[in-house]
Design a protein around this nucleic acid. Structure first.
Lengths: 172, 172
DNA sequence: GTGTGGCATTAACCTATGTTAAAATTTCAA
DNA sequence: TTGAAATTTTAACATAGGTTAATGCCACAC
C-alpha cells in the first residue's frame, strides 16, 4: 500500500511501554498512528471517573482521534499500550494532502474510512440491540485470540459493563 | 459539490410516501440515496421483533447500507419515510468509480466518510458512557426541531429504550 | 357527533446490571 | 519462597429499565 509506505518512510517511529499513553483525552494531537507491533486500548474517562473502552488496536491498524486530527479539537479519548508497542506517527494533515495529490492514496484513504465506518456500524448495532451476554459471546467468537491477552477488567469496560457483571455472566 | 451534482444529474429520482420503505433489512441494494426532501428513519429489527432506530435522515444527507453497497451482502437495516420524501438513488459502485477518476470527487467522498465516522463515534460514545436520561437530554439539545416531528415511540427506539421508559424519564 | 385506532401515560411487578465490600486467587518482585 | 499488589469471584442490596396491561387522550373517518 502506497499510504502505509508513505507513513513508514516519512513518519516518526515511537516505542511505547506497557501501561504508557500515546496521547490522553483532552490533549491536542494532529497525528495518526500506524501500529507496527503490540496491543493498545482506546478509552474514554467520564466526568465521574468511569473508564470505558472504545476499541482495542492491533498491529497494522491506523488509529488517531479523528476529532482532534480533523477538527482541531482536543482528543476525545486516550490511547494506552496494553503490551509493549511500536507505532509510527504521521500528521493527519499531511495524509490528507497526500490524498489530494494522488488518486492511489485517496483511494486507499477511502478504503480505510469505509472499513472504519463499517466497524463503527457493527459496534453501534451491538450496543443498540444486544444484551451484555450476547455482546460477550460475539466478542469471544470474533476475537478469541484477543480475549486471551486481556484482563477481565478491560473486557468488561469494552462491553460497557462492570467487571463484577462480567464475572457473573461467565458463570451463567 | 461535484459529487452531489453528479448524483443529481445521473441518479434516479424517487418519491417515497410516509410509512413506506426505500429498502428493507435483508434486501440487496447497491445504491446510495441523496435525500432532497423529507425525513426518514434507518432501523434494525432483531430476531425477536424488536425495532431499534440507528439514525434519522434529513435533507442533504447521503444514506445507504454500506454493508450491502460495498460488501455485496444483504442490507443490515431498513429505511422508511417518516414524512413524505424525495430521494435520488445512485449506484454505490459508480460513485466509487467516479472517485477513482477524479481527485475532486475522491476528496468529497473522503469528507463525507470522515463526517460519517465522526458521527458514528459520537453515537458510540453516548451508548457506551451515558444513561438513557443523559442521551435524551443530549438529543433534545442537539436536535430540538427534529424531536418535534417524531413520535415518542421513535425517540425511544433511537435512544435504545422502550416508550414506557421514555415516558417515565420525561416525568423525572 | 360517534366510534375506531394509534399514541402516551400510569402502575405493578420483574430482571439485568450497578455498587460496595469482603474473600479467594493469581502474579510477580524481592 | 514469601509477601504485597492486582485481579477475580462472591454476596447482599440498590436501581434503571423491561414487560404487561389498563386507562386516558387525540385525530380522523364516517
Amino acid at each position: 500500500m502506497e499510504l502505509k509506505k508513505l507513513i513508514a518512510e516519512q513518519g516518526i517511529r515511537c516505542s511505547i511501554e506497557k501501561g504508557t499513553r500515546v496521547f490522553s483525552q483532552g490533549d491536542e494531537s494532529e497525528y495518526v498512528y500506524l501500529v507496527e507491533q503490540g496491543l493498545l486500548k482506546a478509552f474514554y474517562v467520564t466526568a465521574n471517573g468511569k473508564e470505558t473502552i472504545k476499541s482495542f488496536i492491533q498491529p497494522h491498524s491506523i488509529i488517531g482521534s479523528l476529532n482532534a486530527a480533523h477538527c482541531q479539537t482536543p482528543c476525545t479519548f486516550s490511547l494506552e499500550a496494553i503490551e509493549p508497542s511500536f507505532l509510527i506517527r504521521f500528521p493527519f494533515s499531511q495524509l490528507l494532502k497526500a490524498s489530494e495529490r494522488s488518486l492511489t492514496i485517496s483511494q486507499e484513504v477511502i478504503q480505510i474510512l469505509l472499513g472504519l465506518a463499517l466497524k463503527k456500524e457493527r459496534r453501534e448495532f451491538e450496543l443498540l440491540t444486544l444484551s451484555a451476554t450476547e455482546r460477550f459471546e460475539n466478542l469471544k467468537n470474533a476475537e478469541p485470540a484477543l480475549i486471551e491477552k486481556l484482563t477481565q477488567n478491560d473486557i468488561a469496560k469494552y462491553l460497557g459493563i462492570t467487571p463484577v457483571a462480567l464475572s457473573r455472566i461467565k458463570n451463567q
